[in-house]
Design a protein around this nucleic acid. Sequence first.
DNA 1: CTGAAAGCGCTTACAG
DNA 2: CTGAAAGCGCTTACAG
Lengths: 349, 349
Amino acid sequence: MVTAREVAQLCGVSVATVSRVFNRPATVSATTRERVERVARDLDFSPNESARALSRQQSAMVGLVWDTDHRRPGWRHPFLQDLLLGLKSALSSHGYHLLLLATSDDARDRRPGVSLADPIGYVSMTRRHHLAGLVLIDSGTDADAFTAFAQSGLPCVALDVALSGPRATHVTSDNAGGAAEAVRHLAALGHRRIATITGPRGNAPAAARTEGYLRGLAEAGLTAREDLVITGDYYRESGFVGMRRLLARKDPPTAVFAASDEMAVGALLAARAAGLRVPGDLAVVGFDDIEVASLVDPALTTVAQDKPGFGTAAAGAMLAMIENAGAPEPVLLPTKLVVRDSCGGHPRR
Amino acid sequence: MVTAREVAQLCGVSVATVSRVFNRPATVSATTRERVERVARDLDFSPNESARALSRQQSAMVGLVWDTDHRRPGWRHPFLQDLLLGLKSALSSHGYHLLLLATSDDARDRRPGVSLADPIGYVSMTRRHHLAGLVLIDSGTDADAFTAFAQSGLPCVALDVALSGPRATHVTSDNAGGAAEAVRHLAALGHRRIATITGPRGNAPAAARTEGYLRGLAEAGLTAREDLVITGDYYRESGFVGMRRLLARKDPPTAVFAASDEMAVGALLAARAAGLRVPGDLAVVGFDDIEVASLVDPALTTVAQDKPGFGTAAAGAMLAMIENAGAPEPVLLPTKLVVRDSCGGHPRR
DNA sequence: CTGAAAGCGCTTACAG
DNA sequence: CTGAAAGCGCTTACAG
């Protein structure tokens, strides 16, 4: 590995100057700068990142906390790939890499041979790696650690959880707005008994979607019925079971808004199992717009989240924090109702 | 951040001793070791990773190259999430984190203000970050850079590409075997005119699947027909178009093996568009077993890849290389035929 | 505009 | 078993 020292020697300057060319080019005379740049390029030199991080107390890495271990097996983020892609591209263009952190359960952060159990906190992990900041994906289980981190003053952007702090902000879909739109769509099609299958208790987006559902009913002049609200957990199975229960009500719904596409698919299956046709006998709307949504039969009408937007917004907020001091405003990503076949087409009026 | 120096002072030992407790505990007397461990724990100390990486010339990070930029928009790895999960967990348990590298196009690795265009190679990037090694996901476009890296002597495990080198190995599904099994399954159901829609030219798994297709035909005593082999590109659209062309043959196939589930779905849609029933008029088998496979109608019979196995195997090979010298044997992951409804059930005999 | 020097926080031969 | 010292490769006040 060629070092700054070698470049310096070849150029007849000090390493300080080489360093300046890379960090504050404006403070170096044009002649020297160009010479150093040429030699650096010829030698394929660029500054060693560990050394740079150590001396600046800041690395070119942003940490990503994606805690999977407390999840039930098979858990999948509805659009992790798009999220990562958006994050990675946006961060990349500013020279940052993404460090996927090993979290709590799957390993205490120790190397083989280290017998010492070191307590792991996001704060100390961030400091130890000199990370520029942390992106936190809501896991539901680590709420306290998340809050502690947000309070720490280290740059932090949370996805799907409303965290705040001196240098913390968050990005979320307009969950309430999207849900309300879905319900209005159903109402516009003539439905009056509109049920919902919600996400898990304690999950913020789930709560917002339920809130939007209620708002949508109100806006359509419909009154909410408690027996038409069923708690699910985002997974397909809970959509199936929930729908079955809804269909057993004395005055069963003619439409259902599921807080995730997975549950909507479950509802579709339950309807089929009960001998109902969708959308003929039952209309269903999902949330997320995962790939499956367009492939099930009938294709699912759903509230689409701005998947790459999540990554881009998170990266944007993070970069802003890294470069400035305070915390940018939280980002509320607009959703979009994608009308397909599970509600019987477009509103009648 | 508490440093080794503070721990040392509190314990009345040198920093060297503190360091030894973390790196070669056996070389420290039990009494001192315990004292240091206690104090370290109380102070929530663990060694700074940048400093450690700099001085050992090796970090606790494994790089991951997932190049997305040359891909057509919308490209998705069929199971990136499972792959990441497997990788992350296995690496974590040995104390390694995963660094998602910003690759070629989306950014030259420079920070704002740096005007110097530094040529990026995987080798120099690995050295600059003192990475313990690199996991390469086949992108098809970066073949030369991949090969160069594999030759470099740095630990390298490639996924889906047969790379080798002093410290390079690779993990792949048994693509040929899986494809052959799919074809035998079709033949056992009585099909004699079995077509295939392949993956893109130049893609190694695609070539292996085609080879397996031919082998499967041979094993079933059938002769291959050139007009029943259509080149696709893994995407759904190419499955649709390919199937339409196949159906236009003078002696059209009664079954098709698609080298990806996406293309199989495309084939399903083409069959439906042509007024054919699946599996009544046409049997179809896919490859991958993505989530969608079980949700399309009819549910897709397909060759499942060992998704978490990919990550685990890659991590295992990487860890072996990090700890020893040479390159472990390449890993061939077994596939598994998942029989669902798109071929008309189980073989008749 | 440039250089000498201190410092970032560890690890690891080398002595003892 | 333990310590003093050198070294990993940068960056950044501080002088000049």
